[in-house]
Design a protein around this nucleic acid. Structure first.
Lengths: 125, 125
DNA sequence: GTTATATTTAGGGATTGCCCTAAGTATCTG
DNA sequence: CAGATACTTAGGGCAATCCCTAAATATAAC
């Protein structure tokens, strides 16, 4: 009996250094981001996903392949229909990087602010 | 009297739909991400930034240009030295997208979990 | 079994990304 | 002003992206 639970970790990739590159690149295209948004409500087939786009099917499918290579989605084929669904782990990877980075940036800019504040104080003394 | 404060908003870009593409693409290269990390401690010149990399200078400078096109950094040239510094706004853009997305994904997966849970219950009755 | 449906494969064209070397320009230093 | 320093410009190669059309394959439906 085949299981379908999320607790099953088949095919999950180990977060390589290079993996984050692929996730960012996958996210750099509006079509692919829209597909991900679409998939956040429910899994969908290739043609369902392709319908809104004025693009030849093979071109569109290439986007799906890229999303799958990046690990952001997974697909299974049943009969003649391939269904795609989300895989949220990689997103956390890049979110972590961004969060970490933003904290550092803000700290740095706060330092700059207090430096400028101090300058201003000393200036007016 | 030239101001230096962060409160000055010169050259800030309006968040276009296409801007987020550029930011994600800029972040998709490890060299560029490292540069950003490096810049989170302090501004730096081209050669300071290039030093750690085993790469011809013109190649490296191309990365810097891409970072600047994306809006993630800004540069000014004084004498023969060009200095780069961070520009945190664009990062928030992509962080927002990711945060929004992750919430949707998690909701979706929670729904899946409760669905599977229900299936299991009904199965064992 | 023929026809419609859902992809997939094959191949090609334009643009961009990511690297290089070689030679320039502009500025600083002695 | 001569030489060192800090980039900048010019040009080229190779691979990947992002789009296309035409034709194949595999399943489903009548």
């Amino acid at each position: 009996m085949p299981q379908a639970g999320r607790s099953q970790e088949q095919g999950r990739q180990i977060p390589t250094a290079g993996m984050i590159d692929g996730v960012f690149r996958a996210l750099s295209d509006p079509t692919r981001r829209h597909v991900l948004e679409r998939l956040s409500s429910r899994p969908a087939s290739v043609s369902e996903l392709a319908a809104p786009y004025d693009m030849a099917l093979p071109s569109f499918v290439e986007h799906l392949r890229m999303l799958e290579r990046s690990g952001l989605v997974r697909s299974r084929k049943v009969g003649r229909v391939r269904t795609y669904e989300l895989e949220p782990e990689p997103l956390k990877l890049v979110e972590d990087w961004l969060g970490r980075q933003r904290k550092l940036w803000e700290r740095r800019l706060d330092q700059l602010d207090s430096y400028l504040m101090k300058m201003k104080e000393e200036e007016s003394e």
